[in-house]
């Protein structure tokens, strides 16, 4: 396919943009909603039901999540094929980051296909009465759990380190100090999101974390603390 220079630039910029908005934003929302599992089955099921009841939810899913992810994926695969990794010869930290960004991206293609099928489209999930219960059984298989841990880490890394690339591509971080700061910020985002994501995975297997709850949370809603009162 022949694309003009302007279109090529636009596609590359959109690739960078979609990684942050909406895909990165969705990742934040998704991990945060998952973390409701740390407050117990009822809390998570309620959160899932609330999301499912959002107005225009199917359109939001299609145009706000799937389409941008698909676009980001296809272009990302094309980009990854132009790389000639050489960490063996030049083992600088940034070179590892560069390689991991591509490796995590490729892994995520497989992970997301599996994950979307298993926990969005599979018949058993759609007809189950409690999403929490379904995920709980889904993750009972150690191999599946391991794949989810890997997928979560890859997604958090790809997003966190992607912010570093984003900052340079768009010309937000131009100086060396600013670029180093962007790299550290990316690492921090990776670590923080990974902690959140992994805790949520354990939440689906029964882990409860109710600390850091605001003191009067219970009075404000019936849903939030049903797990905590035990």
């Amino acid at each position: 396919m022949k694309v003009s220079d302007r279109t090529y630039f636009t596609l590359k910029r959109l690739h960078s943009l979609t990684g942050v908005v909406p895909v990165g934003l969705f990742l934040l929302e998704h991990l945060f909603t998952n973390a409701r599992a740390l407050q117990g089955p009822e809390a998570f099921d309620q959160a899932a039901a609330d999301l499912a009841r959002l107005p225009f939810v199917v359109l939001i899913e299609a145009f706000g999540i799937w389409l941008p992810i698909l676009f980001h994926m296809v272009l990302g695969i094309l980009i990854a094929t132009t790389a000639q990794a050489n960490v063996g010869k030049h083992g600088y930290a940034r070179n590892w980051q560069y390689l991991l960004q591509r490796a995590s991206g490729i892994l995520l293609v497989f992970y997301l296909l599996y994950h979307t099928w298993a926990l969005r489209f599979a018949g058993g999930y759609l007809t189950s009465s409690s999403p929490y219960q379904y995920v709980n059984e889904h993750l009972a298989n150690p191999a599946v759990m391991a794949f989810y841990v890997l997928g979560t880490l890859a997604a958090c890394y790809h997003f966190g380190n992607g912010l570093f690339g984003f900052a340079i591509h768009w010309g937000i971080a131009t100086g060396r100090g600013a670029q180093n700061a962007a790299a550290r910020l990316g690492l921090l985002v990776f670590l923080a999101l990974s902690a959140l994501g992994l805790a949520a995975l354990l939440g689906f297997r029964g882990l409860r974390l109710d600390f850091l709850q605001k003191p009067h949370a219970q009075e404000h809603g019936t849903v939030v603390l049903s797990g905590a009162s035990r």
Partner: peptide, 22 residues
């Protein structure tokens, strides 16, 4: 700028930042 905005230009840099080390 227009020359480096097209295919093969700046947009194809992957920020491995090895160049600056070398």
């Amino acid at each position: 700028l227009e020359e480096i905005m097209g295919k093969g230009g700046l947009v194809d840099c992957g920020n491995a930042q090895l160049c600056v080390e070398a």
